[in-house]
């Protein structure tokens, strides 16, 4: 069992065994983050390129810091200042980076399936940092890691995923990952924001959040993806917030010890109220910390530590 040299494109395609390997490594690497000197020499001499075609704060910084803490050298590509502005294709851009000796590419892209395409173009491994509406596998791994921190298990847990499921790569990766590990998942949102035949993925779908949240151990609030709303999928943010946003009342349907999660960035007052986002039940910042540890583990396994 080894992830060395492999791509990490989706949790749909990742085995439960490999997921658990990453999670257990992340568990031991997390301790590095609380050391006075946050650096181990494990990946010295390796270069990780962040190829981001879409804006990102958390994921990009998280991969960059994960690389640094492991002594790999991160380099970044930003769409705005790149030759993509001159019409260079993704395939050409990526092959140029490969030609410069990059060892691994982390890509964020607005088009679903782009990481699968990149993996066909490149010989070096590709890690998906979010592709369109498809998947965001490292986010789901860090979410699972965070849930384990609080609940110590996944099997049998009730997880409610609420909001804009249609456009959410985070929802898809969590659905694939959490169902593989035995969680019971409910999703809810306005019907216009639920993808077709979603129940065939092994989840229960509701059009009212309260029904999905009933008895939940985890309430996962999705960001309303305002940049991807191309049609009139809902009348207004105000109305969305009233019926589908998570507030104290809707959360009261969950178990008393339920935790609240969100992948960020939050639209405060839209999909989640500030009092819930900042409440003790919110583990949103823990997710961010877990993210660094999980990405350190991913880089470690794919780049193989030492030669």
């Amino acid at each position: 069992m080894s992830l060395r040299g492999k791509d990490l494109l989706s949790l749909r395609e990742m085995s439960q065994e490999d997921m658990e390997l990453v999670l257990s490594t992340a568990r031991s690497l997390k301790e590095i983050l609380s050391r006075p000197i946050k650096k181990v020499p494990t990946l010295r001499g390796k270069v990780v390129c962040n190829l981001f075609y879409e804006p990102s704060t958390r994921t990009k910084m998280s991969f960059e810091l994960a690389a640094r803490y492991m002594s790999a050298d991160p380099v970044s590509f930003a769409k705005e200042t790149s030759a993509m502005k001159k019409g260079e294709t993704l395939a050409d851009t990526a092959r140029n980076l490969e030609a410069m000796g990059v060892d691994l590419v982390v890509m964020r892209h607005n088009v679903s399936g782009s990481c699968h395409f990149l993996a066909k173009v490149l010989d070096i491994p590709v890690v998906n940092a979010g592709d369109g509406m498809n998947e965001h596998p490292t986010q789901a791994l860090l979410d699972i890691f965070t849930i384990l921190d609080y609940k110590s298990r996944i099997r049998g847990l009730k997880v409610a995923i609420i909001g804009d499921v249609l456009h959410s790569r985070v929802a898809r990766s969590n659905i694939f990952g959490l169902t593989k590990m035995g969680a019971e998942i409910s999703v809810a949102g306005p019907s216009t924001l639920l993808p077709p035949e979603i129940e065939k993925l092994g989840v229960k779908a509701y059009t009212r959040p309260e029904e999905a949240i009933e008895g939940a151990d985890v309430v996962y609030v999705l960001r309303l993806q305002l940049e991807r709303q191309s049609k009139s999928l809902f009348p207004s943010q105000r109305e969305y917030s009233n019926f589908f946003g998570i507030n104290r009342h809707k959360l009261s349907y969950a178990k008393e010890d339920a935790i609240v999660m969100h992948p960020g960035p939050m639209n405060r007052g839209v999909e989640i109220t500030t009092d819930i986002a900042d409440s003790p039940r919110s583990v949103i910042l823990d997710q961010v910390t877990s993210g660094v540890a999980v990405r350190m583990a991913i880089l470690y396994h794919i780049l193989g530590g030492r030669d």
Binding site: R12, S112, G113, D131, G132, M133, N134, E135, R169, R172, P195, P196, E197, I198, K200, L201
Partner: peptide
């Protein structure tokens, strides 16, 4: 189902 799974 396939558009749901692929995100296309």
């Amino acid at each position: 189902l396939i558009s749901t799974v692929t995100g296309l």
